[in-house]
Structures are given as structure tokens and as C-alpha cells.
Design a protein around this nucleic acid. Structure first.
Lengths: 154, 154
DNA sequence: GAAAACAATATGCATTTTCATACACTTTCG
DNA sequence: CGAAAGTGTATGAAAATGCATATTGTTTTC
């Protein structure tokens, strides 16, 4: 038990603004919930944006760079480089579109697909556990509300 | 109307996994909602993490570096550098704790406080507008559910 | 059917970010 | 007390990031 301590604030409860500010709550909740799973990601040898790309490709194999950037919530030039790295690691491959030679489509390799399957399964387990933890906390409203928000803002 | 186009997917609706994955919904919703306001931030000459720090200090003036890092959702060594920059710009100042000389407390300067007041006011307006847009979308459940989540995971 | 406008991806470069760890100080404990 | 363990902040260096823009290809317009 520290003695000299009279910290400015050791809980968050005195706050006025941020603790009731929607944009903060969204960021903080995303952060808190995701961090739990990010250890799993890193143990699989991936960084978070790479996992996001893998998960998006799981649903949208063959997506274009631009689509994928939007889906995975990363800026395009950054995605280009992430994809190059993932290609070097054999997780994905790129293929030009012969109809429109500007376009580059990205596909999961077999290795990449195995990894994606594995991590998606783990993500679903983690999610189930998380939702269980959140029982009686209004968590049942969470997904629909978030989906509606995305709908309206998308 | 493009003709040669048979894109893999131009809406998000075919997806299986991510579009119903809580961690993705949280990240995407946070992203979508925040991006709206981030223009305001940049027009004020701040980058997003600086605004977060300012907002946290608005509530917790005098917080320690470590506390502030946790509140503002940034890694400690990064916060140290953000604070140094903000100090150089005259937005905040640092003050050692005489009782515990390891600790550094961060305070809003007058300039910083003015800016914080201004931006917090704008944030609240933006939030009100956003919530209005989200009427009948279950938005009224959003804050409580997020707060509960943070409570349980904090 | 050119020229201009637009679109998709890549890249150069300055800056930021991360990670590990150093450093200074404090608390604990034998 | 004094060594060891623990905390809080800073920093060096490698890597990632963002921004503006180049490059290449496509659509539109006249």
C-alpha cells in the first residue's frame, strides 16, 4: 500500500467528457476487446493489420487492393506494402486483371487459407467467450447497433 | 456504368465472417464514426492522438504520463513523445512530482485549455448530430453497452 | 479518335511508431 | 540498513506509416 500517493485519479470515474463520449467509447471498447485477441494473432506470427487482411480475404478472396484497403480499414499505400510482405511470406498472391490492367486482385494461398481458417475459428471462439462474459450487459444490442451505425455512415 | 466489371464484391453484403464479427464491427464503427470528426481535428492543427490527449486532459488535468497513455489509448513511449511535441507547441506543460521524482504530471496550458474547450464543444455538437442521424437504429443502447463492456474488460 | 478527366496501384521520403532497454527513483524484504 | 525487485519515464534504432505524387491504364467528352 503506497503512502505518499494521492494520485490525480486512479479510476476513470471522475471524468466528465470522455467517459460519456460516443467516439471515445467506441475507440476504447474496440481497443479493450481487440487487445484480448491480439495476443493470439501475434502468437500466430502476424501483426494486427495482417490478420485484418487475412480475415477480409477469408470473406472476399480475390478482392482488389482498393476494396481490401477499405474493408481492412487501412490506407491504400499501406495496404500495398502489407500485401507485398504477405506475398513474400507466401500467405497471399497477387494477380492482375486482364480486363483492366490497373487492377490487382489478391488471393489467399493454401498456406494463407489454412492460417485464415485457423484464426477465424479461434476468433469465433474468442467472440463467443467474450459475449458470454458480457451477458446481461446489453451486449445483445451491440452488434445490431454497430451494424446500423455502419449502415448509416457507410 | 462500367461494362467489363464483374468485381468480386462491391458491397459488403456477401461477407460471412467479418460483417458479423464483434471485434470487426467495433473497429469499423469506431473508424467510421471518428473519421467524420477527424477533419475538424485536423483543421484545428492537431493530429488525432493529440486531440485524444487534449480531451483526456480536459477531464484529468495533471495526470501522469502512464495514466494518460492508458486513457488516451496510446503506448507509453509514444505518449512521451507526443507530450514533448505538445509542450513545444505550448499546449501542455510537464511538472515533476516532488514526492516521487519518477513521475511526470501533464497539465493543460492556457492555450491548450482554450483549444480543448473549443474542441470538446465541437465534439459534443458533432455527437449530438451523429446520434440524431442514428435515431431508430438502436443507438440508445450503444453507450450503455459500450460502457458495460469497458467495465467488464477494464 | 484524341485529349482530358478519372481510376488503381506503387513509390519516395519525411515522420511516426514500436520494441527493447536504459535510467532514475522507490518500495520491499531479509 | 542495503540489496533486490518494482515503477515511471525516456531514448536509440529499426520498421511502419502517411502523404504527395508518379505511373500506368481506362473512360469520357467533344
Amino acid at each position: 500500500m503506497p503512502s505518499i500517493d494521492q494520485p490525480v485519479d486512479n479510476t476513470d470515474d471522475k471524468s466528465d467528457f470522455v467517459s460519456d463520449y460516443l467516439l471515445y467509447l467506441l475507440a476504447a471498447a474496440s481497443d479493450a476487446a481487440s487487445n484480448q485477441f491480439h495476443d493470439t494473432i501475434r502468437k500466430a506470427g502476424l501483426r494486427v493489420p495482417e490478420w485484418r487482411v487475412l480475415a477480409c480475404l477469408y470473406d472476399h478472396d480475390g478482392a482488389m487492393i482498393t476494396e481490401l484497403a477499405r474493408l481492412a480499414l487501412v490506407e491504400q499505400s499501406r495496404l500495398t506494402r502489407i500485401i507485398l510482405q504477405m506475398e513474400n511470406r507466401g500467405l497471399v498472391y497477387r494477380k492482375g486483371n486482364p480486363q483492366d490492367k490497373r487492377r490487382v486482385h489478391v488471393y489467399l494461398s493454401n498456406t494463407g487459407r489454412d492460417l485464415a481458417n485457423d484464426l477465424v475459428a479461434q476468433a469465433q471462439i474468442h467472440e463467443a467467450t467474450l459475449l458470454e462474459t458480457l451477458q446481461n450487459s446489453g451486449a445483445e444490442h451491440l452488434k445490431p447497433a454497430l451494424q446500423a451505425l455502419l449502415q448509416k455512415l457507410g
